[in-house]
Amino acid sequence: MLAAERGAAANTLAAYRRDLEGAEEIVGDIAAADRESLIRLTRAWSGLAPSSLARKSSALRQFFGFLVDEGWRKDDPSSALPRPVTRRPLPRLLTHAEIEALFACAESEAESGRAEAVRMLALLELLYGSGLRASELVSLPLAAVPRDAPFVTVTGKGGQARMVPVGRRAGQALRQWLELRPDGGKFLFPSRGKHLSRIRLFQLLKDLAVRAGIAPEKVSPHVLRHAFATHLLEGGADLRVLQTLLGHADIATTQIYTHVDTARLVALVNERHPLARRAHAD
């Protein structure tokens, strides 16, 4: 149902499967679970973070709702599951200086003309310059990169396609990579007969961060996507435009970046206001 009716992505399907199988390990057959079983399950989950607890509970609620809709159960015991109050965490960010350090390192290495270095620069440009998700980036087909238009066609969550602009810098890096890219395969970033994996992309970024003098735990594909969104908003981008660029189905997801910008403004006042400087002097 998730795949056929909702068009859920493969990663979403895998996450739901893990949550349901994990619950079955504790209470047995989930499809036959009653309220007492779910109360026992909740106790077993007591040490989880609120966000993890909310996700697992949501998966089970949707599962029981599906069973009722299909007529496989007459009752829905999911009211026994917890509803933790969660706050969407502010995304981790890189400063402009850290972004510049990453690019300086990647550009310097790409000057060698080595295929791996040029590929790294192209990956970095698309993560920060176009705000692609890691899964969207590594699975880009070669056909998604037109030769005569500054856009790539991206298939995002739920199989939704969108056009993402590619800046001049990213376009130049892509052209360099296409000249060095191994022949064959349908993916823009091929690897072992398929495409570069998300895990490998994660590792490549960590390694680049170390060479650029940045703590590797601060850098990931999603952090660069957050930096793309936050820095665009700082530059005056409209929230609706940002929603389209990021491929968010709901603008409420995009609004997290307004909180990031607000936090930055508060920090700016605390650091730069004359009264703040006076307090430091005291």
Score class of each variant (00 low, 15 high):
residue 118 V to A: 00
residue 149 A to H: 12
residue 135 S to I: 13
residue 120 M to G: 12
residue 130 S to F: 04
residue 143 A to R: 07
residue 144 A to D: 12
residue 131 G to V: 06
residue 140 L to A: 04
residue 121 L to K: 01
residue 114 R to M: 14
residue 129 G to E: 04
residue 144 A to P: 13
residue 115 A to V: 07
residue 134 A to E: 01
residue 132 L to E: 09
residue 130 S to I: 03
residue 148 D to T: 15
residue 138 V to N: 02
residue 129 G to Q: 05
residue 129 G to R: 00
residue 145 V to K: 05
residue 132 L to S: 05
residue 139 S to W: 01
residue 136 E to L: 04
residue 119 R to Y: 00
residue 150 P to S: 13
residue 142 L to W: 05
residue 150 P to L: 10
residue 121 L to A: 06
residue 128 Y to Q: 10
residue 133 R to N: 09
residue 131 G to N: 02
residue 129 G to W: 01
residue 126 L to W: 11
residue 132 L to M: 12
residue 129 G to F: 04
residue 119 R to D: 00
residue 126 L to Y: 10
residue 144 A to G: 12
residue 112 S to M: 07
residue 149 A to T: 13
residue 150 P to G: 15
residue 112 S to Y: 05
residue 129 G to N: 02
residue 130 S to W: 02
residue 128 Y to S: 06
residue 124 L to G: 11
residue 113 G to S: 07
residue 133 R to M: 08
residue 148 D to Y: 15
residue 114 R to K: 09
residue 122 A to V: 09
residue 125 E to K: 02
residue 143 A to K: 12
residue 124 L to K: 03
residue 141 P to G: 11
residue 117 A to W: 06
residue 150 P to D: 14
residue 131 G to P: 04
residue 126 L to Q: 10
residue 113 G to L: 07
residue 117 A to K: 11
residue 129 G to V: 05
residue 125 E to L: 03
residue 132 L to A: 10
residue 125 E to S: 02
residue 148 D to G: 15
residue 114 R to G: 14
residue 121 L to D: 01
residue 116 E to D: 11
residue 123 L to S: 12
residue 119 R to K: 02
residue 114 R to S: 14
residue 117 A to I: 09
residue 130 S to A: 07
residue 143 A to V: 14
residue 139 S to M: 01
residue 123 L to G: 10
residue 115 A to I: 07
residue 131 G to F: 02
residue 126 L to T: 11
residue 137 L to Q: 04
residue 124 L to H: 05
residue 135 S to A: 15
residue 145 V to E: 02
residue 127 L to G: 01
residue 135 S to C: 13
residue 118 V to Q: 00
residue 145 V to Q: 04
residue 134 A to Y: 00
residue 133 R to W: 05
residue 139 S to K: 03
residue 117 A to M: 12
residue 124 L to F: 09
residue 139 S to E: 04
residue 128 Y to M: 08
residue 118 V to Y: 00
residue 117 A to S: 11
residue 125 E to W: 01
residue 114 R to L: 11
residue 131 G to D: 05
residue 123 L to N: 08
residue 112 S to F: 08
residue 145 V to S: 11
residue 123 L to D: 11
residue 142 L to V: 09
residue 132 L to N: 07
residue 134 A to Q: 01
residue 118 V to E: 00
residue 144 A to M: 08
residue 134 A to V: 04
residue 147 R to V: 15
residue 118 V to K: 00
residue 117 A to G: 14
residue 138 V to T: 06
residue 130 S to M: 06
residue 137 L to I: 10
residue 121 L to E: 01
residue 149 A to Y: 14
residue 133 R to Y: 05
residue 135 S to E: 13
